[in-house]
Design a protein around this nucleic acid. Structure first.
Length: 603
RNA sequence: UGCCUGGUGGUGUAAUGGUAGCACAGGCGACUUUGACUCGCCUAGUCAUGGUUCGAAUCCAUGCCGGGCAGCCA
């Protein structure tokens, strides 16, 4: 069974409900919109992380539950920070996360398409239709479709800006950045009008057209909305709509010396795509008035989109700030954006987290307006639950110590039946080899055992999982006093199907034949930070966990030699593991520990 | 100190004027050829004070505490 498929025996999760879904349901009941259209609008200036996963699941989930659509749109209005590397990673991450779950509501547009001009009741309008849902899959896979991009709307956005100027609702301002800041005032102090605020429509039109023609240097002028410099909401104090930047754009090319700012581009992009519910995080709450102002100022003919805000995800011991994640990459704290210790979607994927588990986690934390901090245990619990149903059980020894079963001939190979997954309704088995020399986990032996130690100790007995009970007779040490070998007697009558198979011992341990085994690099991960809220730290680099990665050469049962990246494994009594899709080379498997098993004894 | 916004067990979240419930965490026990899984039991909460009401987590008032906003970032 692949970890990518959902367990058919699992009960379908109840449809989530939250205040945004309640609003959507009410709008549907009122027949306010024909179809619910949401959007996921990342800026391609970094990799997607677990916080984005929450937004993806919310937006795609709402589309999915209402037979709607969710557009993937790049909010690419700032070319100096953006890059195609990010565009590609974002598309891959979104596809992976929604695969088999919401691909049918993924909104893409026809390749190269731009908003089309048309008329509604005599009023001019622009609209960009998505690829029809029935054709999405074939068009996406055939590269006939692509994500939406705000930069595809630069022409329409420019036309709307001209319209705003004609309506006396926008003006060209010559204030320097510093002056603009001074004139804006502060939260407690009203701002004051720009001296350029009352330029004539003609002058504004002329100046703005020349800005677009590239006549002025970077930063020389801006286009501003004419609202209210004394507004208690800072974002209504004549916010900037356009700035001059003589740089090429990674998607739109080299034709634009002016670029729209977020507030101006976002609401109109939503409108152009026919978005009904524009869902974002709480920090945009104060921008909502501006979002509405721009759309209303233009008196657009179609129903307007509305913005709704929710609290972003905060997960203990992790960071979700693209800037800080970039720092971790640049400072080489991690190897890359997709390092398995990173909370990026690509990092989590590489670590072995199933998409369904990630989805369930970000959905289970709920959608509210309360700024919360979710415990790491919640995430870990969801991951373990998924992996438990899906993972193939295998025997592997991470830190081996040699055991000699003195009563077995050197050339004897005893085949034992091992269960592949006890959680299956009808579990299958495979054969593993028991030989005279085996490896056990060094943690499973103690010369001086602590109280209640169930594992191997001098004179004690343990069961070798799927095999027989062994008794420790002798501890062999080297000159330095280090234990090099444990000499034991195997009681073969305790094997399954033999006379004493029912004999109980307290401990059962995992093991691997010293002959029939393979070596493999195994990467053991721990949390990246030592504190629950690294983001609250003055310098988050100072709370990086120095032992977030431990690399060992492990002994694995031979069946693992043919492992594939789609399989998920439970190395019994150790944890869940997956092949590293990036560094594994033919004949040289590298396994990542996705997560350890719960260990109640360690407490 | 201006505006916006929020406060339910340790954590997250439900209850939309009518029995404060669920999950995770924690504790105890059962089961176990994974000290896993599973199962059973337990612990623990409406920020405060008033008001409205037969009845308030929910409505109102005041207070307290938290988050957000002053990029030509998104």
């Amino acid at each position: 069974m692949s970890a990518e498929t959902t367990n058919p025996s699992a009960a379908p999760a109840p449809a989530p409900t939250d205040f945004i879904r309640d609003i959507v349901a009410q709008h549907l009941a009122e027949k306010r919109y024909q179809k619910i259209v949401t959007r996921f609008p990342p800026e391609p200036n970094g990799y997607l992380h677990i916080g984005h996963a929450k937004s993806i699941c919310l937006n795609f989930g709402i589309a999915r539950e209402n037979n709607g659509q969710c557009n993937l749109r790049f909010d690419d209005t700032n070319p100096v920070k953006e890059d195609v590397e990010y565009v590609e990673s974002i598309i891959a991450d979104v596809k992976w996360l929604i695969d088999g779950w919401a691909d049918h509501v993924l909104g893409f547009k026809a390749k190269g398409a731009k908003p089309a001009a048309h008329t509604i009741d005599g009023k001019p309008d622009f609209y960009l239709a998505p690829v029809p849902s029935a054709q999405i899959a074939s068009h996406v896979s055939g590269h006939l479709a692509e994500p939406f991009s705000a930069s595809d709307y630069f022409e329409q956005l420019y036309l709307y800006a001209l319209e705003l100027i004609k309506r006396g609702k926008a003006y060209v301002c010559d204030l320097t950045p510093k002056e603009t800041e001074e004139y804006r005032g502060s939260p407690e102090k009203p701002g004051k009008d720009s001296p350029f605020r009352n330029r004539s429509v003609e002058e504004n039109l002329d100046l703005f057209k020349r800005m677009r023609a590239g006549e002025f240097p970077d930063g020389a002028r801006t286009l501003r909305a004419k609202i209210d410099m004394a507004s208690p909401n800072i974002w209504l104090r004549d916010p900037l709509l356009y700035r001059i930047r003589h740089v090429a754009h990674h998607h739109a090319g080299a034709g634009w010396p002016i670029y729209p700012l977020y507030d101006y581009a976002h609401c109109l992009s939503d409108y152009l795509e026919g978005i009904t519910h524009s869902i974002c995080t709480l920090e945009f709450e104060v921008h909502r008035a501006l979002y509405d102002w721009i759309l209303e100022a233009l008196e657009l003919p179609r129903p307007l989109p509305h913005q709704y805000e929710f609290a972003k995800l905060n997960l203990a011991y992790t960071l979700v700030s693209k800037r800080k994640l970039l720092t971790l990459v640049n400072e080489k704290v991690v190897t890359a954006w997709d390092d398995p210790r990173m909370p990026t979607i690509s990092g989590l994927r590489r670590r072995g987290i199933p998409a369904a588990a990630l989805r369930e986690f970000v959905t289970s934390v709920g959608v509210t307006r309360f700024d919360s901090l979710t415990e790491a245990a919640v995430f870990e619990n969801v991951v373990r639950n998924h992996l438990n149903t899906v993972a193939l059980r295998r025997l592997a020894v991470l830190k081996p110590i040699k055991v000699v079963l003195t009563n077995l001939p050197a050339d004897e190979v005893i085949l034992c039946d091992a269960t592949n997954n006890p959680q299956d309704e009808t579990p299958t088995t495979r054969k593993i080899s028991l030989t005279r020399e085996i490896f056990i986990e060094s943690d499973d032996f103690a010369e001086v055992p602590p109280p209640k130690y169930f594992r191997l100790k001098p004179g004690g007995e343990v069961r070798l999982k799927y095999a027989c009970i062994i008794k420790l007779d002798e501890i062999v040490k080297d000159a330095a006093g280090k234990v090099t070998e444990l000499r034991c007697t195997a009681d073969l009558t305790t094997r399954k199907g033999e006379a004493n198979s029912d004999k109980k011992v307290k401990g059962t341990i995992h093991w691997v034949s010293a002959v029939k085994c393979i070596d493999a690099e195994v990467r053991l991960y721990d949390r990246l930070f030592t504190v629950a809220e690294p983001a609250a730290e003055e310098d988050f680099l100072k709370v990086v966990n120095p032992s977030s990665l431990e690399i060992v050469t492990a002994k694995l049962e031979t069946s693992l030699a043919t492992a594939t990246t789609h399989e998920r494994f439970q190395f019994e009594r150790l944890g869940y593991f997956a092949l590293d899709a990036k560094d594994t080379k033919p004949g040289q498997p590298i396994f990542n520990r996705t997560i350890s098993l719960k260990d109640n004894w360690a407490k």
